[in-house]
Simulated scan of single mutants.
Amino acid sequence: MTLTERLKDEQIAAMKARNKPRLGAIRLVLAAIKQREVDERITLSDEDVLAVLVKMVKQRRDSVAQYEAANRQDLADVELAEIAVLDEFMPQPLSDDEVIALLDEAVASTGAVSMQDMGKLMGVLKPLIQGRADMGKVSQLVKAKLG
């Protein structure tokens, strides 16, 4: 079952359960997927759908930070609820040790030794880690390893 099919099944389940917050979050994801498919005139693969999910989670985390800074916890709670729903469709997150192991393998395979090789290294790491680890944290680990 593809990720899109799973999302559609969960949408139907949320409708039957009359769970409006969950239904709203799933509809937002499906709308973003459909928008990208229409814009690019393609059918998104699971990898592409995962990229949409990652982007949506990142947007919501940014919104939570802004809402909390403005003392609007009510709005932050709505965003946090949406993040919880979106996280259900994300792959299992990698532990720090797993990320470091993947980083070491990528360094060995690319022969990266300095900051000039960071782009090449991130190009190898991104498909392996996307959606499973915070790319900002991974970037910091790469800089520490190469710097």
Results as ranks from 00 to 15, higher is better:
Ala112Cys: 11
Ala108Gln: 11
Lys20Leu: 08
Val54Thr: 12
Lys16Gly: 00
Thr110Met: 08
Ser109Cys: 10
Val85Glu: 07
Met1Cys: 09
Gly111Pro: 01
Met56Val: 01
Leu146Met: 03
Val49Trp: 10
Leu23Tyr: 11
Ala84Cys: 00
Leu80Glu: 12
Pro21Asn: 06
Leu94Ser: 07
Lys145Glu: 13
Asp134Asn: 15
Gln140Pro: 01
Arg132Lys: 14
Lys126Met: 10
Ile12Gln: 13
Lys143Ser: 13
Leu94Pro: 03
Ile26Asn: 01
Pro21Gly: 04
Asp48Gln: 15
Thr110Gln: 07
Arg61Cys: 09
Leu30Arg: 02
Ile12Ser: 11
Leu103Val: 08
Met90Ala: 06
Ile100Gln: 15
Leu80Cys: 00
Ser114Leu: 09
Lys8Tyr: 06
Ser109Glu: 15
Gln66Met: 13
Ala65Phe: 02
Arg72Glu: 14
Asp9His: 14
Gln116Ser: 14
Glu82Cys: 08
Leu86Gln: 04
Val78Asn: 10
Gln130Val: 12
Ser114Tyr: 09
Glu98Tyr: 04
Leu94His: 08
Val113Phe: 04
Gln66Ala: 15
Val78Lys: 13
Ala25Gln: 06
Val49Leu: 10
Leu141Ile: 12
Ser45His: 08
Ala14Pro: 03
Val85Met: 01
Lys137Glu: 14
Arg72Ser: 08
Leu141Asn: 11
Gly24Thr: 03
